[in-house]
């Protein structure tokens, strides 16, 4: 994967498959502490402790279940290569939180990429899931809650192409 945004698209797919109704996606860029962190939080079906141990291993997991495979190992590799780590916390029936931390200034940290495009794809394809997106960049803090968008739209479907385009532009405007 060329961009971290594509990893987010991929990881969020796991949450969707897990039947999540709420998915939180947080991006934190903190140059002061040299931290770049991505967090995906869902209220899906969660995993057993044994499964949490196994998801980071592509060979054990890729063929035992469709829920995991190369996605998580790739992100873990990417994080570890950039002086960071991957952390997964999960509780069966409660949900899963995945956190990937990178050294902000590490030469091997991929760029974030088109996160606005990724969010608009996720929202457009899953209009029934509530997405809460938060992006902190040093002192800046931007958040978007699809519930607020739905309230604003008063009945217009959130997955209308023009609405999605608007969401994409709005995110881009704020994280420049």
């Amino acid at each position: 994967m060329k961009e971290l945004a594509l990893h987010i698209l991929d990881i969020a797919q796991n949450s969707i498959t897990a039947g999540a109704e709420n998915i939180g996606i947080n991006v934190e860029e903190d140059e002061g502490n040299n931290v770049f962190r991505i967090t995906v939080i869902d209220d899906g079906c969660g995993m057993s402790e044994e499964m949490v141990q196994r998801v980071t291993d592509p060979y054990v997991t890729s063929r035992t279940t469709r829920r995991v495979g190369m996605g998580i190992p790739l992100l873990m590799h990417s994080a570890e290569q950039a002086g960071g780590f991957l952390k997964i916390e999960s509780k069966k029936g409660k949900g899963t939180t995945l956190e990937a931390t990178f050294e902000h200034n590490h030469i091997d940290r991929p760029e974030l990429g088109d996160i606005a495009g990724v969010m608009s794809i996720l929202i457009g394809s899953n209009p029934d899931i509530r997405f809460q997106y938060q992006h902190k960049k040093n002192e800046q803090d931007f958040s978007l809650d699809t519930n607020d968008v739905i309230d604003t739209l008063e009945g217009i479907p959130i997955n209308e192409p023009e609405v999605l385009k608007f969401i994409r532009e709005m995110i881009n405007d704020h994280i420049k």
């Binding site: 994967m1 594509l6 698209l9 190369m70 794809i121 192409p161």
Partner: peptide
């Protein structure tokens, strides 16, 4: 198709193209 394999091969661009062009 947007699993790891699709995303890594560029399905995001294809999807964005389809949404924009069909509209």
């Amino acid at each position: 198709a947007m699993a790891t394999c699709g995303i890594a091969s560029g399905s995001k661009e294809v999807m964005e193209y389809l949404v924009d062009e069909l509209d």
